[in-house]
Amino acid sequence: MDTQELYVTADLAHIQLTEEEVSRLALQVDQMVAYFSKMSEFDVSGLEPTTHMQVSRSRVRADERRDIPGAHPDILLDAAEELEDRFIVIPNVL
């Protein structure tokens, strides 16, 4: 993978890379992608993809309110770094 590809991928992943990181990660990413290419040796024709184990169908429940432990809005808001009334304050970004 060339450096340009790495920057495109990092951009998609919302990760900002320093130059030092780019030179180190480029080698490691390359090594792993080359390792993944071993999969191309194997003939996959006729095989269905496995996405999950032991899940045969979606499970449904009654469409009604239920209390999830700890999921009360006030408790969740408390986890935010900074609050103003019931609004989450984020750094000034404009």
Partner: peptide, 11 residues
Amino acid sequence: VKLRILLGTYV
């Protein structure tokens, strides 16, 4: 973590 996120995003 960055390495794995980058790999996952790439694939």
